[in-house]
Design a protein around this nucleic acid. Structure first.
Lengths: 153, 153
DNA sequence: ATATAATAAGAGTATATACACCTATTGTTG
DNA sequence: CAACAATAGGTGTATATACTCTTATTATAT
């Protein structure tokens, strides 16, 4: 394939400047680091976040959890499966509205979360130290702004 | 499950402050927006990035492509499949080193990329306008820094 | 030159992601 | 109350992601 400088140049921006690509790329990279840290627990990054979110909700439904995670409802359903299978989460039909499913942490779920928490703290501190607190705070704020922009679209 | 304020508080940070979770969450959100924009082409966000990266490489091997995308080699192999099946990419055994596979864009691949480029430009501009050029530039720089930190770990 | 080490890449398995379509339950309206 | 609309959630399918193990080829050491 012959390629002129001109032809190639128009694809530098979609590579280096693409917000989507660079966010996905960074997410892949950081996920590696966090999953390595969480490996002693056997939890994946998403699974840790799901347990934390469930813990914070107390009693959560699929829709509410999905909304708070900015995750498709059907994705969440699938992601809950391995955690249910391992006995970390329990889902029961809604007591008032039987269409709903109530998701709660089990004792085993609380235990694994307690084990995971210090490992998370360690890797989070490692990242914070390497990037600097200022940059981490700025990054988190910019990420929040990005999500708000998208949800407003 | 009884939950004291004290117990719950320790999980606010792993939710709101976790670099990994928030990067993944933002990646999910922004992917939705870009994939909606690219829908007329049938390309997913990753597929668009793969075509762009291949275009920039001219001739790429699996390892080199994977490295530049910060993507696991085996992930890349899987991601190439749908693009090969649709005839957008071709992979051939390396001419000098037969262990390698050379990945190149086909004519059909160049065509779909030409169709996708203006759609990408539009959504990228939309995001840039909404976030502001300053914040986009800052975000991209911070994301790069994040990746560098991880690769240095 | 051959045995061995190193490198490039694929396959098996498991999780993550979301769209389109479907079912069950609840709410609403005549 | 019965018909219909709205809502909560699951399934089928396809892609995305990466770890472990395996094969094929190349490089190296004796």
């Amino acid at each position: 394939m012959k390629t002129s400088t001109q032809e190639r140049k128009q694809y530098l921006e979609p590579a280096q400047g693409c917000v989507c690509f660079n966010l996905r790329k960074s997410a892949r990279a950081i996920t590696q680091l966090y999953e390595e840290a969480l490996r002693p627990t056997g939890l994946r990054a998403t699974q840790f976040s799901l347990l934390v979110a469930t813990r914070l909700h107390g009693v959560a439904t699929i829709n509410r959890l999905a909304k708070s995670l900015v995750m498709d409802r059907t994705t969440l359903t699938r992601n809950l499966k391995p955690l249910e299978n391992q006995g970390f989460l329990r889902t029961t039909p809604g007591s008032e509205d039987r269409r709903e499913r109530e998701v709660t942490l089990t004792i085993a779920g609380q235990d694994i979360l307690s084990k995971a928490l210090p490992l998370w703290k360690q890797v989070q501190q490692q990242v914070t130290k390497a990037l600097g607190q200022t940059r981490v705070d700025r990054l988190l704020k910019d990420l929040s702004a990005t999500i708000e922009v998208i949800e407003g679209s």
